[in-house]
């Protein structure tokens, strides 16, 4: 059990680090981008992706 917890803690620290906002934001931005592509708004996605990423960084710096 100790090893499983340690293994999970290692990967949590490796991926999430000290900001959950970035971990969730990093994944959410591509989900949002995929929805835009699905709705045939590829041009919007091209601009929205970097914009949302910058917003996510800004949000993480506030916490």
């Amino acid at each position: 059990m100790k090893y499983i917890t340690g293994f999970a803690a290692f990967w949590y620290d490796f991926i999430v680090g000290d900001s959950v906002v970035l971990a969730i934001g990093g994944a959410a931005v591509l989900v949002l981008g995929a929805l835009l592509v699905h709705w045939d708004m590829r041009g919007v996605a091209e601009v929205a992706l970097p914009a949302i990423i910058v917003g996510t960084l800004g949000l993480s710096l506030r916490s």
């Binding site: 000290d18 971990a23 990093g26 931005v29 990423i53 993480s60």
Partner: peptide, 15 residues
């Protein structure tokens, strides 16, 4: 790859 690079890169930028 995109998700991992985004998360990893944003962590480095924030730090």
């Amino acid at each position: 790859i995109g998700v991992l690079l985004l998360i990893f890169g944003l962590q480095w930028m924030r730090k």
